[in-house]
Design a protein around this nucleic acid. Sequence first.
RNA 1: GGAGAGGUGGCCGAGUGGUUGAAGGCGGUAGUCUUGAAAACUACUGAGGGUUGAUAGCCCUCCGGGGGUUCGAAUCCCUCCCUCUCCGCCA
Length: 426
Amino acid sequence: MLDLKFIEQNPDIIKRALEKRKVDVDIDGFLEMCNKRKSLIQRVESLRARLNKESKELGRLKAKGVDIQDKARELSQLSDEIKEIEKQRKDIEATIFDIRSQIPNIPAPDVPEGDSDEDNVEIKKWGKRPEFSFEPRPHWDVGASLGGLDFERASKIAGARFALYFDWAARLERALINFMLDVQTRENGYLEVLPPFIVNYDSMFGTGQLPKFEEDLFKLQGWDYYLIPTAEVPVTNIHRGEVIEEKQLPLAYTAYTPCFRSEAGSYGKDTRGLIRQHQFNKVELVRFVHPDTSYKQLEILLTHAESILQRLGLHYRVVVLCTRDLGFSAAKTYDIEVWLPGQNTYREISSCSNFEDFQARRANIKFQPEGSKKKEFVHTLNGSGLAVGRTLVAILENYQQEDGSLIIPEALQPYMGGIEVIEPAK
RNA sequence: GGAGAGGUGGCCGAGUGGUUGAAGGCGGUAGUCUUGAAAACUACUGAGGGUUGAUAGCCCUCCGGGGGUUCGAAUCCCUCCCUCUCCGCCA
């Protein structure tokens, strides 16, 4: 959410930002409503000031035993008038709020302009593509021949876009979660948190999923409850409505959660394998930081996500998302894309974003600056550290062997009870 | 699920229709005193909005959320949410 005064005073910046994102909002109509709102406020407040004053006077007169009937009748009319204007004011403020909550964040100045993910800009690469003496297979083949993944039965149990993990695959998923949490807590200074996987409307509003993206979410029937699409939601909302002491910043949390996404609008996309599931595991990183440092913090966050891939020896590249590809709440986003030899492509495995004060304003998260009276909004950031299912995919595709076996990356072996290789069932 | 008790400023806590312009305390900030500190004393101490050149004044709103009664609501009524206690159920 953007500051109302900022929108009123800088409509051109907003229009330009919307244009870059190819989002259409009637800003001129919005500004007209803002003016209407102001004139209603001025009218209602001057009437209310009069009512307050005269009501007090009336109380004094009554205490003295003076007959107040006529005056009371007059004020009753005034009171009705105020209620009428107040109603108009509430209506227009609700409309203004609705529109404002659907305006996306302003892209940072260095975000490249572009129309699709084709225009995202690669800023670095790490490692090298592994070389194979055979044609590397996609992960669903590797998984099938090793017997750890079962999509057919999963679809019987739940439907399309669900997976069953057995044996080594279930253990590998669990190993990855523990490995990621250990690195983030022990080496990168994050506090581990295990949050609710179901949240209410206000939390979804706070991080920007609602009201605009309800169709992407699973909602519990008959409840004001939603399944989380990412741990970003419950973790960022830990401090909703709070004032944080400046000296506590930056606050850094990491959380493992499953994530639930309806994947509306992605029919027919990535239907095979583990890439696009209704339920997947993710270890998330969330930072609450001082506004002055948030872009530096974004770079730090990125290195924390990268560190996992580096320790797993997985080749990846980092791209900056262009304006059209940027998420609703984000001002700037880096995607880390891991190399998948079985599909001969890079796939997103982490998304690291600076939301500036966009989420903090929606969720009312402030800090008290040293030596200043005025509380300010913090900046929030988050990134995947990493998407667990896709990491498993990357391991399957990058560490597959010609004989059908799978090598376990060294960093994971302690988490797999020392197992170094998974052999196909005989 | 049943019965009951609560939700007031950063925190504790008073307040059952009109000087509440939210008592008092704690915490915080500044000052006096002190070599320094502590103690004591003094002053200040929230958020949002409107007006304005203004972070000055003035005005409006906010006592869990929403709605209502009234000239006037923290206070009365309705409704929802949350917390706590006991019972039931349950991992």
